[in-house]
Design a protein around this nucleic acid. Sequence first.
DNA 1: CCATATCTGTAGCGATCACTACAGTTATGG
DNA 2: CCATAACTGTAGTGATCGCTACAGATATGG
Lengths: 200, 200
Amino acid sequence: MAMGRPREFDADAALDQAMEVFWRHGYEGSTIAQLTEAMGINPPSLYAAFGNKEGLLKAALDRYTAKRAAWMEGVLSAPTARDVAERMLMETADIQTDPDNPPGCLLVQGGLACGTGSENVPFELAARRALTEDQLRERFVKAKKEGDLKQTADAAALARYLSAVSAGMGVMASSGADREALRQVANVSVKVFEEQSTKR
Amino acid sequence: MAMGRPREFDADAALDQAMEVFWRHGYEGSTIAQLTEAMGINPPSLYAAFGNKEGLLKAALDRYTAKRAAWMEGVLSAPTARDVAERMLMETADIQTDPDNPPGCLLVQGGLACGTGSENVPFELAARRALTEDQLRERFVKAKKEGDLKQTADAAALARYLSAVSAGMGVMASSGADREALRQVANVSVKVFEEQSTKR
DNA sequence: CCATATCTGTAGCGATCACTACAGTTATGG
DNA sequence: CCATAACTGTAGTGATCGCTACAGATATGG
């Protein structure tokens, strides 16, 4: 069978550009015209490759979470629960104010509340945020087993707490908070883990 | 001079309805058709009273923050910094999951990232979030003077921290987190203030 | 070298967007 | 009681939305 004409653009490079548009303007604030221009392709190529606007978002989210997964592994490899928390929050402060990227977090400002017809976009983002929370919870369960986290500590609550703080930092970053402000929040937040850690 | 025909709708009641639409769908996800239907008026009445869609949002935000201001006064009147934090976060958990209102916080999910032409909507929300943060900072300065907060405590950082946590709770609530989950976050968050408080 | 299959660019589809012209209605000021 | 001024409902405005029909281009399989 014939194979057809091969696509002329790099799908991953195009996704990086789409990710940036969604990141900066949110799902509903991003138009197909903006996306195609940033990606350097025409609408039919976009729809052939990704189905529709929501499919493009999911693909961009996949790429976003894949990049974060590598980073998250490093965070989770910190020796203690307290170190995990500190490293996650401090690095989050840096990432969310990195001038190479739009401010904040795509999984937060990508679309918290959407109009009729895009109701599942918020769910899509929430599901991916939940993955990070799950990883944190498991890491804290392990920390309790290893003994650096008190036996009375609530791993699920601590994971939810970190998830909430980083989301809150994303909100602040998206509206212009600078790196120092986010680091202040991170520093205060980590104190919870010092109290929940065993004495060393 | 002649005074003209009086308006036939209650502006405040109409604003309450508009607030709910913005709250649930965000600024860009809310259409004039949805807003006018919820408000029980026709587009010309809306534009005569509020100028345009963004003017309506600002009026709705004014009403939202006015309602919150009354609640915030109660929070700030708590006897100690720790009590202020606990009361604010626990009541925020309840408010953001109150079935009488859309989940979350209008000042968060109303529009974190918007498209071209609505760039100042995120700023508008951020400015109003900042007001609460300012109130908290001043309250914690007072707490240091009164002695229930350690002299080494950073009032500005603690205020920013509370602001971030409540924003993060709003993110979680908007995507379906239940009251118990938010209360867990609130409980963990308050521990920071126990460490920063003077022994009693 | 031809048939087939897929991609690309142009051009434009119907639907919906925020917004308004206009005529009719209801109040006040004189 | 009339002129004026503001509000109301109908019915749209042009612009932009997400999306696609179509024709030409470019690869593979036989």
